[in-house]
Amino acid sequence: MHLFLQTLGFGLVTASIIAVASMGFTIQFGLTNVLNLSFGSIMTVGAFIGYLIEQAGVNAWWGLLFGGLGGAVLTLLLGRTVFKLYARRGTRLFEMVMVTLGLALVIEYIVDAISRAQLYSVSFPQGASVNIGPIILTVSQIIVIGIGIAIFLGLEGLLRHTRLGKALRAMALDPSLARSCGIPTGRIVNATWLLSGFLCGAAGVVYVINALSVTFSTGLDFLPTVLAAAILGGVGSPRGAALASLAMGLVTAFVAAAGGSAYSTVAAFGILVVVLLSKPSGLSTVAARRVELTL
C-alpha cells in the first residue's frame, strides 16, 4: 500500500508535466488545426531559457515566466509568418504536418548548434522532502504538481468564463460562423498562438525543474508523449488532455515501479494504441472532411 501511494505521487508529478504541454498543444491544434510537430522544439527553447535564467541566479519562478514568454513570442512569430505563408500558398492540412516537422528539425538543430550539443545539468533547489501522509515528495515536485493543477484550473476558468475563452471555443467549433457573429478571428488566432506558446515554453521549464538536465533534443523526445495525451484526450479539449495526461503519468509510474522502467513510456503509448484500436469517433476520417486550416 505504501509503495502504491508513493508511486501515485510520482505519477502525479509526471502527469503534471505532460498536462501542461498537452493542454497547450490541444488548444493550438483544436483552434488552428495545425498538427504542430515543432511544438517539441519550442519546448526545448523554453527549457533553455529556464536554464539560462537559473544560471543567472534568478528565482526559478522568473524562469517559468520567461520560458513561457519566450515560447509564446516564438510561437506567435512562427504562426504569423511561416504557417500563414504556407497556408496562403495553399498548403493543405496534412502537408502542413510536414511543414511543421521541417520546422522542428531546423529549430532543434539551431539549438544544437548554439548549445554545442552538450547536456546541461540544472541545479534547481529541490527543497526538503515533505511527507504527505505516506507519500514523500520534494518541495519542487509538489510545486510541479501545483503548477499543473493551477494551469489546468486557470485554463478552464479562461475558457468557460471570459470573453476570450468563449470566442476561442466558438472559433474552434466553426470559424466562419464565429466570424459572422463578429468575433475578431484574426486576433483570436494570435491569442491562441500566444497562449499555447506560453504553455509550451512553461512546460519546457517545468520539465527541466523535474528532470534537472536539458539538451537540444529534450523537447522533441518529449513530443510523442504530448501528442499521445492530446490525441487521447480528444483534440481541443484541455480537460480531456489533462485526464489523458493523468492516465499516462500514472501508467508510466506504475510500470516503472513494477520493474519495467525500460518499458514505462512504451506502456503509456500502449493506452493510445488501445484507444485508437477501439475506434474513437472524433478521430474518424468522416469528421475530418470538414476540417480546414484556420490561420
Binding site: 498538427l35 496534412f94 501528442l227 512504451v266 484500436l277 478521430l283 474518424s284
Partner: peptide, 25 residues
Amino acid sequence: FALRRLRRDYQAAVMLIVSLILLQV
C-alpha cells in the same frame, strides 16, 4: 492499426509515435 480510418495528419503522428516506441523497445 495505423492506417485505419484516421485523419491523415493523425496517421502521420501515429507513425512518428510508432517509430519512437520501437526505437525505445
